[in-house]
């Protein structure tokens, strides 16, 4: 036993208030989903407002969407889906007691998160050069009306808030990869890996909906 602690049995990961690990696992899962429900409603508010304004200004939102780089949006979706796969593989690996595979898969998932942010930065740079940032030298080609600006405000806020989540996710993935490498988790005790996995998959789901919302509006 490494540490004697009255609150947590470090060797098994079982906290004092639980009878056993399955009960603790259930509590952690439910708590995580309560947090994710608040996240669903936070992003949901943005998606709802977007839909309401899109119904009001359908043409301006199509014009706004035409300015975006569809291939970067689609490519980034593939990157996040692949990274979600690696997180799922990491959880699978630790359940079968494979610490090395778990650590590796978490690091790969985090690296793919960095690739996502890299592509997003390139896109943001191109967007700013084309005058698509509503607060800085705003001069999009073609229609330059208030409703197109509104679309772009949504674009920056929604993708920006998502990017903040990706950044937090990368830090969490690497943190738990380090703990996993130190041998903190095993077949029995690996709640933190599963919980960070739930968070990362949620971030992936938000992007799954951002793709048709922002990038796939206008046919052709």
């Amino acid at each position: 036993m490494r540490v004697k602690n009255t609150a947590i049995e470090w060797e098994t990961g079982l906290a004092q208030q639980f009878d056993d690990l399955p009960q603790q696992h259930e509590a952690a899962t439910l708590g995580m989903w309560v947090f994710l429900a608040t996240e669903i409603l936070m992003f949901g508010g943005l998606f709802t407002a977007f839909t309401a304004y899109r119904a009001t200004y359908p043409h301006a939102f199509e014009v706004g969407s035409e300015h975006l780089y569809r291939w970067i949006g689609v490519g980034n979706t593939a990157v996040l889906l692949l990274s979600s796969l690696f997180v799922a593989l990491a959880v699978h690996a630790i359940k079968h007691g494979d610490n090395r595979a778990c650590t590796r898969d978490l690091v790969v998932a985090a690296a793919l998160g960095v690739v996502f942010l890299g592509l997003k930065s390139i896109e943001y740079t191109l967007d700013i050069r084309e005058g698509l940032l509503p607060w800085y030298h705003f001069h999009p080609e073609g229609a330059n009306d208030a409703a197109t600006k509104l679309f772009l405000v949504f674009y920056w806020f929604m993708t920006g808030l998502h990017a903040v989540h990706v950044t937090i996710g990368i830090v969490l993935l690497l943190f738990f990869a380090a703990l996993c490498r130190r041998g903190e988790y095993d077949t029995e005790w690996h709640n933190p890996i599963e919980m960070v996995g739930l968070y990362w998959h949620f971030v992936d789901i938000v992007w799954i909906f951002l793709l048709p919302t922002l990038y796939l509006i206008k046919p052709g």
Partner: peptide, 13 residues
């Protein structure tokens, strides 16, 4: 989470 989201969206839209 998804039921509350559905209410928010259906009523607003």
């Amino acid at each position: 989470g998804f039921v509350w989201l559905a209410m928010l969206m259906l009523l607003t839209v």
